[in-house]
């Protein structure tokens, strides 16, 4: 939670950055951002700037972590020490990053067809170069694109966004200031085909009704997010198709 005086987050139906309660920030995804990776993408989600890259499947090492039935996923989410407007951060995993890495890994354990690759590991790296609230959601969203571009078979393309509450008003896609001062924050990741929840975290206070309402808001925003994800995945192939049309 932020220190100092609490700013007025919601005024005359508008948020500090001019958005309405259910507006997403602008999202832009650049596919194939890291040349060495098997799949990668870069996302700008508002002021968040994040890279996701996938290496694998490859032999899981050390050997004792291998699962003879299916692939394992190793995920590392990390924030760059220069990613925030505040003080220089500390390098390496902290408790927050460790937890986010774990829940992100679990999202992809759901989405990836792991039993195609027994004994293998799939490495997913998410590097937050600049953060402005909602980095785990943006990270999962861009990681989906990176995973799909790596060619690893998936049963669905998960997306993620958070819902929060200011006073008694629900707002979608919290930025950093809203995240610091809101009354509740609930990051959610969904599998769009089934509308199953694959990540759910929450802190603050929400009534049962508000949670229900929040989930509807997420699914509505999900249509936009999914469309941007699919366009990013298709883009490199469309460029190739364009070249061969001539």
């Amino acid at each position: 939670m932020g220190g100092g005086e609490k700013p007025e987050l919601f005024k005359d139906g508008k948020r500090l950055d001019g958005r309405g309660p259910e507006d997403l920030r602008e999202i832009k995804i650049i596919p194939d951002y890291i040349k060495n990776a098997d799949g990668s993408a870069y996302i700008e989600w508002g002021n968040n700037k994040i890279i996701a890259a996938v290496y694998g499947p490859q032999e899981a090492l050390p050997k004792h972590v291998q699962d003879p039935q299916r692939a394992i996923i190793k995920c590392r989410y990390q924030m760059a020490p220069f990613s925030s407007l505040e003080e220089h951060g500390r390098t390496g995993p902290n408790r927050r990053a460790t937890e986010i890495s774990k829940v992100t890994k679990e999202v992809f354990e759901n989405a990836v067809l792991l039993d195609y690759f027994p004994g293998s590991e799939i490495n997913l790296y998410i590097e937050v170069l600049q953060g402005d609230g909602g980095t785990r959601a943006a990270g999962i969203t861009v990681a989906s694109v990176a995973m799909a571009l790596s060619g690893i078979p998936m049963r669905d393309l998960p997306y993620s966004v958070s819902v929060g509450k200011v006073g008694d008003k629900l707002i979608l896609d919290l930025n950093k200031i809203e995240d610091n001062y809101s009354d509740a924050d609930m990051p959610i990741a969904m599998s769009p085909k089934s509308n199953d929840i694959v990540l759910l975290q929450m802190d603050g206070n929400l009534t049962k009704e508000e949670i229900k309402q929040g989930l509807i808001m997420v699914q509505k925003a999900g249509e936009t997010i999914s469309r941007i994800q699919r366009e990013a995945i298709k883009a490199p192939y469309e460029r190739i198709a364009e070249r061969y049309k001539k």
Partner: peptide, 17 residues
């Protein structure tokens, strides 16, 4: 390239980034 940092620069040298 990362305006939250006081300074930032991205350099590409061939495929090195």
């Amino acid at each position: 390239v990362m305006p939250n940092a006081e300074g930032s620069a991205e350099v590409t040298m061939g495929h090195t980034k």
